[in-house]
Write a protein that binds this DNA or RNA. Structure first.
Length: 433
RNA sequence: GCCCGGAUGGUGUAGUGGCCUAUCAUACGACCCUGUCACGGUCGUGACUCGGGUUCAAAUCCCGGUCCGGGCGCCA
């Protein structure tokens, strides 16, 4: 559209055309500085009034912050300028005028509440901090995708409209489907198993999941992005190795490729968690929690870990860690149990000190055991026929996991609300934009 | 689902019964200013979530609604 030069690619002596947003105007009287912002940075433009035409002066007068302009001119070296260079303009053209009453301040002089920022996300995206978050999120997904390809995975897409839930169907969003009962899928779980256990063996998917729980926390959403992995002929131990490798590669890539964005977020020298992550059993997790005086209610074997318990264990571990050997009864039916002690499962969780990041395990691939497991959890195998039936035709041993992409970004960037890392979050009361 | 908290100019805030004709910052307008970099200075514009109640008097107390934030449960 325009043959333009990016701000960070312009150097002294260049005759350039730049386009972008008016970040700020500083009128000193005879001299006016305009700070122009594009996706690459901010450039100071100098207007000396006595050299300007009345036309240019009147344009300058209408330029509210966040208006979009096109400027041509000469880049000069100027040590008094913030970036060491400034633009001496020849022409200025307004591409889009902005209303002066901005719904939030992209220059960051006045802070805005998260809810205001989410309501006006388009304007919020003009803040360099917000942009840094999504640039990093993209790098995380790019590097993870790359790693999956490197370990021979195929990227798949499974349906988001389903007839039945993963673990029952209580917390699903019902939708109208030509007169039939249907739901938004809460997880690709069953489908990715069918693909991995089909002929493809190694698969991954990065896609949306939907949960209808009316929770109200800073780490839950009703629409989230899940990074799913599933592979045939690997056990839960190997699946854990893949999980920690994926986390590790994400940290390394961001550290290496996003120094500018990390700096913007005051995260210079991002610390990279060391692998392998410690593995602790469910039993010792309970022990750690119960050994703390901060725990208000002691846990009994078979209880799920409370948020408080998770925090206590997290601060004790002080790094990413796995919890293994969970009681079978609190893991889903598709998780395989240890043959020698069936009350213990081959399920695992990968925890960040502040929250759960990954849930996975070795799957039950034996038809009879799977039917038993379904029934033990009060589910009707008939409801899962499309899935269960396939286990009659040579389902290989397989394992996998699902990782909360939003939580990965949130925990890496030490943000206190998952909505910060989702462009247009869906929560209990937010459905737009 | 249970529980707690909040709503004041465009934005972010101060204000716990009369001192509020409501503070400050930013924004916007006018004027001054040729090296700002959160530019500065002077003046100005602009707001109490809605409905009901208590009171001589309500932004402030009470009840209800709406909207929002958060904790727990559960999970990714």
């Amino acid at each position: 559209m325009y043959d333009r030069t990016l701000i960070n690619a312009s150097s002294p002596g260049d005759e350039i055309t730049v386009v972008g947003w008016v970040h700020e105007v500083r009128d000193l009287g005879g001299l006016t500085f305009l700070l122009l912002r594009d996706r690459s940075g901010i450039l100071q433009v100098k207007f000396e009034k006595e050299t300007l035409s009345s036309e240019t002066l009147s344009i300058l007068d209408q330029l509210y912050r966040e208006s979009v302009v096109l400027l041509t001119g000469m880049v000069v070296s100027e040590k008094r300028a913030p970036t060491g260079i400034e633009l001496v303009p020849k022409t200025i053209e307004i591409l889009a005028l902005s209303d002066p009453n901005l719904p939030l301040d992209p220059s960051g002089k006045v802070t805005s509440e998260l809810s205001t920022r989410l309501d006006k996300r388009c304007i919020d995206l003009r803040r360099i901090e917000t942009r840094a978050i999504f640039e990093i999120r993209s790098e995380i997904q790019r590097s993870i995708r790359q790693r999956f390809y490197d370990i021979d995975c195929i990227e798949i897409n499974t349906p988001k409209i389903v007839a039945t839930g993963t673990e029952g169907g209580t917390d699903l969003f019902p939708i109208a489907y030509f007169g039939k009962e249907a739901f938004m899928n809460q997880s690709p779980q069953l489908f990715k198993q069918l693909v991995a256990g089909g002929g493809i063996e190694r698969v991954f998917e990065i896609g949306p999941i939907f949960r209808a729980e009316e929770h109200n926390t800073t780490r839950h959403l009703n629409e989230a992005t899940s990074i799913d992995f599933e592979a045939a002929f690997i056990d839960h131990e190997m699946a854990m190795e893949v999980a920690e490798d994926i986390i590790s590669i994400a940290y390394h890539s961001v550290s290496e490729n996003c120094p500018q964005q990390l700096h913007t977020l005051s995260l210079d020298g991002l610390s990279i968690p060391e692998t392998p992550f410690p593995r602790i059993s469910y039993d010792s997790a309970i022990e750690i929690a119960n050994g703390s005086s901060d725990l208000s209610e002691p846990l009994e074997w078979g209880d799920d870990l409370s948020t408080q318990a998770e925090r206590i264990i997290g601060s004790t571990m002080a790094t990413h860690y796995f919890i293994t050997d969970w009681p079978s009864e609190i893991k889903p039916f598709y998780i395989q149990n240890h043959d020698e002690s069936p009350e213990i499962s081959k399920g695992f969780d990968l925890m960040h000190p502040s929250m759960e990041l990954v849930s996975g395990g070795q799957r039950e691939h034996r038809y009879d055991s799977l039917i038993d497991a379904l029934q033990n959890q009060g589910l009707n195998p008939i409801d899962f026929e499309f899935y269960v039936d396939m286990f009659r035709y040579g389902m290989p041993p397989h394992s996998g996991w699902g990782m909360g992409a939003d939580r990965l970004v949130m925990s890496m960037l030490q943000l206190d609300n998952v909505r910060e890392v989702v462009l247009f979050p869906r929560d209990r009361n937010r459905l737009a934009p």
